[in-house]
């Protein structure tokens, strides 16, 4: 590969996309007016890119599976326990835990935009924000779940919860019988993001290297 061609192609800094330039322009105005602190904006990005994610929720679920007292608190006093653990909502929202049972499977959606329990799951995946999911999760949840590989038996009802800016839902999945006896840390590996939205069920980690989300 001719190296000089590479140099020619990148003689100047790579030009960002149109919306990226628009964001820069907006940031410039807001910074000049003293309305934003760029360091605080960077800290928010770092938080959601590196520190907050589904592993927090997975840890809560695993602990609830092994500690009935914690589970009762998580279900009945969610805001209190999350606040105690340092996972309180930034927008003053409430997080509600909905528990799967043999009679009922819970599924979470936001039909308005993409409200989501950020403090325990991080930012939502693209499919959660798509029109297809946001409309079809309400209209045909069983079919949607089949597409996620989740087969809900006919005798198990499905409840669909519509998240809002005020109330975000977290699904507490049922513990798989195959995982009985494992400790909390091992169980957290069985809980991936989709379990806590309702579009997945807990399963054994695939490999030690990949694990779950």
């Amino acid at each position: 590969m001719p190296h000089d061609h590479h140099d020619e192609a990148h003689a100047h800094a790579l030009l960002p996309s149109e919306p990226a330039l628009r964001v820069k322009a907006l940031e410039t105005i807001l910074t000049r007016k003293g309305l934003i602190d760029p360091a605080a904006v960077d800290a928010i990005i770092d938080l959601y890119e590196h520190k907050i994610g589904p592993r927090i929720g997975a840890g809560l679920v695993a602990r609830a599976w092994v500690d009935p007292g914690f589970k009762a608190q998580l279900v009945n006093n969610t805001d209190g326990i999350l606040s105690d653990l340092g996972f309180g909502g930034r927008q003053g929202e409430h997080i509600v835990v909905v528990e799967n049972t043999p009679d009922c499977h819970n599924l979470v959606v936001c039909t308005l935009c993409s409200c989501y329990p950020w403090p325990v799951l991080g930012v939502p995946p693209a499919w959660y924000k798509s029109d297809a999911y946001r409309s079809r999760a309400v209209r045909e949840p069983r079919t949607v779940l089949v597409e996620f590989g989740v087969i809900i038996p006919p005798e198990q009802s499905i409840r669909v919860w519509d998240s809002t800016a005020e109330i975000r839902y977290l699904v507490l999945p049922m513990q798989p019988t195959e995982s009985y006896g494992l400790d909390e840390a091992a169980l957290a590996g069985w809980v991936h993001r989709n379990c806590m939205i309702g579009t997945g069920l807990p399963s054994a980690p695939r490999t030690a290297a990949s694990g779950h989300d």
């Binding site: 499919w127 297809a132 079809r136 949607v144």
Partner: peptide, 8 residues
Amino acid sequence: LAADSAPL
């Protein structure tokens, strides 16, 4: 919807 949209 999500045959490939539910990555572990």
